[in-house]
Design a protein around this nucleic acid. Sequence first.
DNA 1: ATAGATGCAAAGAGTTTGCATAGGT
DNA 2: ACCTATGCAAACTCTTTGCATCTAT
Lengths: 131, 131
Amino acid sequence: MSEKVQRNTRQRSAIRRVFEQNDRPLSPQEILALAQREVMGMGIATVYRNLKALVEEQSLIAVQLPGGSVLYEAAGKAHHHHFQCDHCQRVFELEGCLPDIHKLAKPKFRVYRHELILYGICAECRASSRN
Amino acid sequence: MSEKVQRNTRQRSAIRRVFEQNDRPLSPQEILALAQREVMGMGIATVYRNLKALVEEQSLIAVQLPGGSVLYEAAGKAHHHHFQCDHCQRVFELEGCLPDIHKLAKPKFRVYRHELILYGICAECRASSRN
DNA sequence: ATAGATGCAAAGAGTTTGCATAGGT
DNA sequence: ACCTATGCAAACTCTTTGCATCTAT
């Protein structure tokens, strides 16, 4: 029942800083690459272990995307959804939601939450490649 | 450019029949288990190879769910979304959609498609376990 | 008879875990 | 000094691929 005391290692701090400096959902690989700028030699296992710990302490949220990838983003944001760019693959946050979204299910089904993901081309990719 | 002639093997027929008899998205493992009732000894590699072929010939659609699993369902259905039961993990189809769903993205983003997944407890699980 | 399809096992890709050691406190 | 966190490598899970054999045509 008692929680272990967590230590502030260079690795964990670097990972935290990555999220402060990048306000969009990130993949474990991206996180590793960004954190390695500060702590070279950091291993991928350390990233996974810290992500797990940070999710448990509710500092991060795991964003499960269709297709298998799990991304992580800072916790505590208002309810929102995501947009993934078909061109650069990056994921952006979308503000807001839609009313009645839970009414799509039949009455006998109890709906507790939902995920909505839009796909297309982000502003940056549209500007740079005339898609 | 020319396509290979496809053979009607017992295995492929069994897989097709599984989809005729189960009108919801199925995982490769479920498909294997169901198809093995007809063709015992069928291997998982055969399932994957046939799913790939059936998607290419547009008989099936791959349904990418958050969390990694890829399910397959019969192609040709009207636009729809999915519900996954937190209890039995099964996925059901939801009819209909919502207007304005693409307007959640900023104007500079071009949206081409979207996925919506509701989560909760299905009618059957509610009835059987008082959740 | 021919060439696509199958089953098995090995190979990949992504994630998790065991273990000896480094390093916060 | 203690005990958590790290890095490495092995283990796992899911999917794909190579290959010898089978089988639909």
